[in-house]
Simulated assay, not measured.
Amino acid sequence: MMNKRFFILLYSFSCWVSLLNGQEYPNFRWIDFQADKTVVVQGQGWGNDVVNRFDRLPGIYKDSVRQDVWRLSRNSSGIYVDFTTNSDSLVLEYKYGGKESLKNMSSIGVSGMDMYAKMASGKWIWVKGKYVSFEKDKMQLLFDGLGNDKVLFYRLYFPLYNNISDFQFGIRHNANIIWKSNPEAPIIIYGTSIAQGASASRAGLSWSAILGRETRSPIINLGFSGNGRLEKELVDLIAKKKASIYIIDCLPNLVAFKDEDVYQRLVYALNRLRMENPTTPIIFTEHAIATIELVNDASQKDYERVNRNFNRFIKDQVEGKDSNVYVLKAEEINLGVNSTIDGVHPSDLGMTQYAEASYLRLINRITALKK
């Protein structure tokens, strides 16, 4: 009797697992993001010109930028979709092409997706999902218990440090879905691994994602881990894209360059942006980690050195000459050791400090001045 009951339970469980892990969602219809061009993908500056659906740079740049930059541009950091739906459940399926995790980031931050709901009250609430499968060739994430009539819309963030393909979005057969867009000029961020999202535990906790939820502007994230070097090709591309604000946060990746090179790259970035956008606000950011006290201070000296060159650039090229250039000082970001995971890359706490205590405060001041 016991054996019979055990096998009945085992069979029932295996059927349930098969339902979740297989393609057997009889009450769902599937949206293929690669094929369905009605889906509005946000966080992309050149969405009509990409090779793969979730790339961040236009395809014609493949041979114009360094190989490392192109590889990182295929990571979907900062890409998201906004939508409304009356489906009580959603299923996401996709594949990823890189490593599941990194030494300084979790698997979910690197390869996972993240969802928030904007409520009628104006508050953002995180939406809990369940990874039914977490495999390179079959990621499957289930959101259930949805259908709250106080939700204005959902925002789904794509992985911070991986390139994805074969993305399928499942909703109930009888449900509706409407993809939202934001026609406002974006905030364009050009930066380093910190801008790309290291080391947030989830995609929605990168500072650019937090900033996006707190402003009305769409965000374009051009953070390239170890490769935010203020290179001419990237600066030229960004300058031609109209924005509400440009954020240049590249100093952490300029520590390998000599003083004059750091200075000249900053000068080129300012002049090129101003050639195309004479009055658009530009935020240049100091190397934030310069405020952290370390016993082994060799890297600290590098941080301070690039900041000295940066401040020389501001004094020579900006002060008294361009009132639409703003500086975010390291002291304003105010990262401490507990705000990072390794003395460099922000933890979730550090990401919040970056977004809310520094960038958002400065952007609100810029917005107030423009009124």
Score class of each variant (00 low, 15 high):
Met139Asp: 00
Met2Val: 12
Arg305Pro: 02
Val327Asn: 01
Leu20Pro: 00
Leu335Glu: 09
Ser358Gln: 12
Ala243His: 04
Phe7Ile: 15
Gly226Lys: 09
Lys241Trp: 07
Lys241Val: 04
Thr192Asn: 07
Leu237Ile: 11
Gln44Thr: 05
Ile248Val: 15
Arg305Glu: 07
Asp55Ile: 07
Asp249Leu: 00
Thr38Ser: 14
Lys118Thr: 03
His345Lys: 00
Asn182Asp: 10
Gln196His: 01
Gln23Asp: 13
Leu222Tyr: 15
Ser133Gln: 14
Val306Lys: 04
Val295Pro: 09
Leu20Trp: 11
Trp30Glu: 08
Tyr326Thr: 02
Gly22Ile: 02
Ser111Pro: 07
Leu141Lys: 08
Ile210Arg: 09
Ile219Ala: 01
Arg229Glu: 13
Asn75Ser: 12
Asp68Cys: 00
Trp124Cys: 03
Lys232Leu: 08
Leu57Asn: 13
Ser12Val: 14
Ser121Lys: 11
Lys150Asn: 14
Asn307Arg: 03
Arg274Gly: 01
Val69Glu: 01
Lys103Pro: 10
Tyr25Ile: 07
Ile164Glu: 03
Lys4Asn: 14
Tyr157Thr: 00
Ile220Phe: 02
Lys118Ala: 01
His345Phe: 00
Met2His: 09
Gly191Ser: 07
Ile194Phe: 08
Arg29Tyr: 05
Phe28Pro: 01
Asn334Ile: 04
Val262Lys: 04
Arg229Leu: 09
Pro58Asp: 11
Ser165Glu: 11
Met275Ile: 04
Val91Lys: 03
Leu369Thr: 01
Val262Arg: 05
Trp207Gln: 00
Pro281His: 00
Met275Asp: 14
Leu251Pro: 10
Gln264Glu: 13
Phe6Ala: 13
Pro252Thr: 05
Phe224Asn: 02
Arg365Gly: 08
Leu360Val: 12
Ile210Met: 10
Ala243Tyr: 04
Lys242Pro: 02
Ala198Gly: 12
Tyr154Asn: 01
Val151Ala: 00
Asn3Trp: 11
Tyr80Glu: 02
Arg229Phe: 05
Ser299Pro: 05
Gly204Tyr: 04
Leu273Glu: 04
Gly147Glu: 07
Phe284Gly: 03
Tyr80Asp: 00
His173Ala: 05
Thr291Tyr: 00
Ile79Gln: 13
Asp149Gly: 02
Val327Met: 06
Ile194Ser: 09
Arg272Val: 08
Val267Arg: 12
Pro252Lys: 02
Asn334Gln: 07
Asn338Asp: 13
Asn163Ser: 14
Gly129Tyr: 09
Gly145His: 13
Lys4His: 14
Asp236Lys: 06
Ala288Thr: 14
Val235Leu: 06
Gly204Thr: 06
Ile245Arg: 00
Asn227Ser: 11
Val110Ile: 06
Asp322His: 06
Asp348Lys: 03
Asn334Lys: 06
Leu222Gly: 02
Glu276Pro: 02
Lys315Ala: 13
Gln317Asn: 09
Lys128Ile: 08
Ile366Trp: 03
Gly147Ile: 12
Phe224Ala: 00
Ala198Cys: 15
Ile8Lys: 15
Met115Trp: 10
Phe143Met: 08
Pro281Asp: 00
Phe153Met: 02
Asp36Lys: 08
Lys329Tyr: 15
Asp63Ala: 11
Val337Leu: 13
Arg172Asn: 10
Tyr268Asp: 08
